[in-house]
């Protein structure tokens, strides 16, 4: 399997810094701003981002984590049942500008699930999407407002995000995984 490095630890840190500045710039501060990360790695990124934003603006930003398992559209087809984790959003999302954070943006289905989940919790005034890596191949009309890096990929490849909190190292890699060739061909034909 081929493994290409997209970010090392320092690169990752700089990218999170830049994204934090972009969020603050676009929203002209942190008034009504709150951050929600999609479990598991989006959650860690959200916490890092919130910390950065607090350093920049000297004001705390509420952070929450969102588990989207119950909203997945592939719950019934899966052989292995995904583990259900808890959503922990301890602030009222109604009226907030929410920055939704995930590590990789791919088909857009996870984001769709997250949007539905958020709407069931309250009525945010707006939701912005922030991702570390946008790898393309969208299956739904979804677009990131803030992206750490746009990486053109083939369906054969996999983007692996490693974070200290879960993986004991910081880094983002592009993997060339062996997948069923026929399946990919069919999928590519469709697009």
């Amino acid at each position: 399997m081929k493994k290409t490095k997209l970010f090392d630890a320092a690169g990752l840190r700089r990218t999170v810094n830049r994204l934090a500045h972009e969020v603050v710039e676009k929203n002209k501060g942190v008034e009504d701003l709150a951050i929600v990360g999609i479990r598991t790695r989006g959650d860690y990124l959200a916490r890092r981002l919130a910390q950065k934003i607090e350093e920049i603006e000297h004001k705390p930003v509420p952070v929450g984590s969102l588990d989207i398992t119950l909203y997945r559209d592939d719950l019934h087809g899966k052989l292995e049942q995904p583990q259900l984790k808890s959503t922990e959003i301890l602030f009222d999302v109604t009226g907030k500008i929410l920055v939704l954070v995930d590590d990789v943006l791919f088909t857009g289905r996870t984001v769709r699930a997250a949007l539905n989940a958020l709407m069931d919790i309250g009525r945010p005034s707006s939701i912005q999407l922030l991702v570390l890596v946008d790898r393309g191949h969208r299956e739904l009309p979804i677009k990131a407002d803030f992206a750490g890096k746009n990486v053109p990929t083939s369906l054969r490849q996999q983007v692996q995000v490693l974070l200290e909190e879960a993986d004991k190292e910081d880094g983002v890699y592009l993997l060339d995984a062996k997948v069923d060739a026929e399946e990919i061909e069919q999928k590519e034909k469709k697009q």
Binding site: D67, L70, Y71, L84, K85, S86, T87, E88, N116, D120, I121, G122
Partner: peptide
């Protein structure tokens, strides 16, 4: 996890 769902304003998941 479901106990948390039951504490939300909308207590329904899909």
């Amino acid at each position: 996890s479901f106990k948390e769902v039951l504490e939300r304003p909308i207590k329904k998941v899909p």
